[in-house]
């Protein structure tokens, strides 16, 4: 079967309710919905530029519940890059990522350094109920040798940066999000920090 090499597949993993769908929808559609609708599995596409060509960024938004282990394996096999999302308001959600990380390691038994993985601490706008400090996320990322960012899908903080950073980590292709200048809208909300910020 011929492989569609023009696709770049990103898979978003994380526990239930940490905001995977919100992050993806904020990135793809620019919208944010209050309220929680559990996802089973959805995909989205975005046209990006890759090696000065056009290519499709295919984003798979997965389920947070562990009902479908077979689907998780399949997604890992098919994925080129991964975003692991936890919520800064739940330490448990960070812990649950370990199982997914192990599954990725096991399935992609090549040098993990070659596979782009971003760790994202979402809901960083919820300062009141924060359980996980920024530094803890950083440490975890260091242990897993991946990159880390705190994000908020609600305030659109670091969302685009998260995906751009992920694409930057891919060494085999040179990818950028914007096809031309029109994507650059004025961004609302607090100042954008590139990385390693700490909102308390």
């Amino acid at each position: 079967m011929p492989e569609q090499s023009n696709d770049y597949r990103v898979v978003v993993f994380g526990a239930g309710g940490v905001g995977k769908s919100s992050l993806v929808q904020r990135f793809v559609k620019g919208t944010f919905r209050e309220g929680y609708v559990p996802t089973i599995e959805d995909t989205y596409t975005q046209v990006i530029s890759c090696n000065k060509n056009v290519c499709t960024l295919q984003i798979t938004d997965t389920t947070g519940s562990h009902q479908f282990p077979a689907m998780m394996r399949l997604n890992i096999t098919k994925g080129h890059a991964f975003i692991l999302v936890y919520s800064v308001t739940s330490r448990q959600s960070l812990k649950e990522l370990s199982a997914i990380w192990d599954a990725i390691l096991e399935t992609k038994n090549e040098a993990m350094g070659d596979i782009p993985v971003m760790l994202a601490g979402n809901k960083c706008d919820e300062t009141e109920s924060r359980e996980v400090n920024c530094s803890e996320g950083e440490e975890q990322a260091k242990r897993w040798r991946c990159n880390f960012m705190e994000t908020s899908a609600k305030t659109n903080f670091n969302v685009k940066e998260l995906f751009q950073e992920l694409l930057n980590m891919e060494k085999n292709r040179n990818m950028t999000l914007s096809l031309d200048g029109k994507e650059k809208k004025s961004q609302k909300g607090p100042h954008k920090f590139k990385e390693k910020c700490c909102l308390m």
Binding site: T39, I40, E41, D42, T43, Y44, T45, T56, Q58
Partner: peptide, 16 residues
């Protein structure tokens, strides 16, 4: 039952 609904570009959503 859980099933997928696809678009022309083969993206899909999963419904229950």
């Amino acid at each position: 039952v859980i099933f997928r609904v696809h678009c022309a570009d083969h993206t899909y959503c999963t419904l229950r």
